[in-house]
């Protein structure tokens, strides 16, 4: 792909918009369609595009495996952590209403955080799955 400057430049221009769109989807899910899950997928799509155009090595440098794993783990922990905080604040597990003085504010905070957790997890998980598949040597043969 090194000989296709237009593709490379186009991609470089496109990626910020994809990321922006992902962020919009992430945080606008309360009002319109969208949410953490879709945002995570779109965010991952940006990296997938990057990897396809600039090669796996560059993509891996931009998003190393360790980082992906930490984001993925953190996403789940964030979601469950919100639940635990609700527990500590005197509610049941995943009760957001106790997170703030007014129940609806608490709900907003809780939903924001869990959607963020979902987004992080889905993004990192999808990117990981793709990277792992793409890094596999097609000619590889395992002997057992």
């Amino acid at each position: 792909m090194r000989e296709k400057p237009i593709l490379r430049v186009g991609t470089k221009l496109l990626i910020p918009f994809i990321l922006l769109f992902a962020l919009y989807v992430q945080f606008h899910g309360d009002f319109g369609p969208g949410g953490g899950f879709q945002a995570g997928v779109i965010f991952a799509a940006a990296f997938i595009l990057y990897a396809l155009v600039f090669g796996m090595a560059n993509a891996r440098a931009a998003l190393p495996a360790g980082l992906r794993r930490q984001i993925m783990a953190l996403g789940v922990l964030l979601y469950a952590g919100v639940g635990v905080v609700g527990m500590l604040a005197g509610g049941n597990f995943l009760d957001y209403s106790v997170l703030s003085d007014t129940p609806t504010t608490g709900q907003h905070i809780g939903i924001f955080l869990v959607e963020l957790g979902v987004g992080m997890n889905v993004f990192a998980a999808m990117a990981t799955i793709f990277f792992v598949f793409a890094s596999r040597d097609p000619s590889a043969k395992e002997d057992g």
Partner: peptide, 25 residues
């Protein structure tokens, strides 16, 4: 609420949260 009241949730949440911890470790 005491810890005892939360046991049903904890039975599942504890292993659930342990998985990302293991992956991080």
């Amino acid at each position: 609420m005491t810890l005892h009241d939360h046991l049903p949730a904890l039975a599942v949440v504890v292993p659930l949260m342990a998985a990302p911890v293991i992956v991080a470790l």
